Computed example of a mutant assay.
Amino acid sequence: MENIDIGKKVEKYRKEKGWSIRELARIAEITPSMLSQIERGLANPSITTLRVVAKALDVPTFHFLMEDTPTADLVVRAGQRKKMVIEDLAYELVSPDFTGTLGTAILQVPPQAASSEKLLAHKAEEVAYVLEGKVKVYLNDEAYVLEAGDSVKIPAQMTHKWENDFQQPASILFSVTPPAF
């Protein structure tokens, strides 16, 4: 929790409202001195104080307690994607990692390759979009041929697999929630 600066967040929300320290202090019914100390990081507010400040600012209290993520960590350059190769399949992470509640990757399926021998299920829900090529997706006992521009939603626990029995490689962009491999 080292990236949390409650005071800076209070100041940011206060300034977004166009309020002075005195105005927010009056609305929140705390002293301007206390509010100034909180904003400058010289005092940590009690939960009670944080709640009244949050209510005055019309911001959920938990927003003040969330860690800040450096924005540079959110950008993934095309040539710097994390890659994983499993047998003939290659995965490139589009999201920075598979932490959090959503992960996105590109699956490269070469001709005459499949994601598994048999249908598998997992706890994650997926949405997949075919970027290029053609690929067969098995959903339970049904098979569907998807071409570039086609997409599919795969509910959690549904058995499925990808298979490319065509002549060209296929690229599939997919998002998974929660991230699971």
Rank of each mutant, 00 (worst) to 15 (best):
residue 3 N to C: 05
residue 5 D to V: 01
residue 8 K to A: 03
residue 8 K to L: 05
residue 8 K to Q: 09
residue 12 K to R: 14
residue 13 Y to V: 00
residue 13 Y to N: 04
residue 13 Y to Q: 11
residue 15 K to Q: 12
residue 16 E to H: 06
residue 21 I to S: 05
residue 22 R to L: 14
residue 22 R to W: 00
residue 23 E to T: 09
residue 24 L to N: 08
residue 26 R to V: 12
residue 29 E to C: 06
residue 29 E to Q: 08
residue 32 P to Q: 01
residue 33 S to K: 12
residue 33 S to I: 12
residue 34 M to V: 11
residue 34 M to L: 14
residue 35 L to H: 00
residue 35 L to C: 02
residue 37 Q to N: 11
residue 37 Q to W: 12
residue 38 I to D: 02
residue 38 I to A: 11
residue 40 R to E: 02
residue 41 G to F: 02
residue 43 A to F: 09
residue 44 N to H: 09
residue 44 N to V: 07
residue 52 V to N: 14
residue 52 V to P: 07
residue 53 V to Y: 07
residue 55 K to E: 12
residue 56 A to R: 05
residue 59 V to G: 06
residue 62 F to E: 07
residue 65 L to V: 04
residue 67 E to M: 04
residue 68 D to P: 09
residue 68 D to I: 07
residue 68 D to R: 15
residue 69 T to Y: 12
residue 71 T to R: 15
residue 72 A to G: 08
residue 75 V to K: 13
residue 78 A to R: 15
residue 80 Q to E: 10
residue 80 Q to G: 09
residue 81 R to Y: 05
residue 81 R to G: 02
residue 82 K to I: 05
residue 87 E to R: 15
residue 88 D to Y: 08
residue 88 D to Q: 14
residue 94 V to W: 03
residue 95 S to H: 00
residue 99 T to F: 08
residue 100 G to M: 01
residue 100 G to R: 01
residue 102 L to G: 13
residue 102 L to D: 05
residue 102 L to K: 06
residue 102 L to V: 10
residue 105 A to N: 11
residue 106 I to N: 11
residue 108 Q to Y: 10
residue 114 A to S: 15
residue 114 A to F: 06
residue 116 S to H: 03
residue 117 E to Q: 13
residue 119 L to A: 15
residue 119 L to G: 15
residue 119 L to S: 15
residue 122 H to K: 01
residue 123 K to R: 11
residue 125 E to T: 08
residue 128 A to M: 07
residue 128 A to K: 08
residue 137 V to E: 00
residue 138 Y to D: 04
residue 139 L to D: 07
residue 139 L to K: 09
residue 140 N to I: 07
residue 142 E to A: 09
residue 143 A to T: 10
residue 144 Y to N: 05
residue 144 Y to K: 14
residue 145 V to M: 07
residue 145 V to W: 05
residue 145 V to F: 04
residue 146 L to N: 00
residue 147 E to N: 15
residue 150 D to Y: 07
residue 151 S to Q: 06
residue 152 V to F: 06
residue 156 A to Y: 12
residue 158 M to K: 13
residue 160 H to D: 03
residue 161 K to F: 10
residue 161 K to H: 07
residue 162 W to Y: 07
residue 164 N to L: 05
residue 164 N to S: 03
residue 167 Q to I: 10
residue 167 Q to L: 14
residue 167 Q to N: 14
residue 169 P to G: 03
residue 169 P to F: 01
residue 173 L to P: 00
residue 174 F to T: 00
residue 175 S to A: 13
residue 176 V to H: 05
residue 179 P to A: 03
residue 180 A to D: 15
residue 181 F to Q: 04
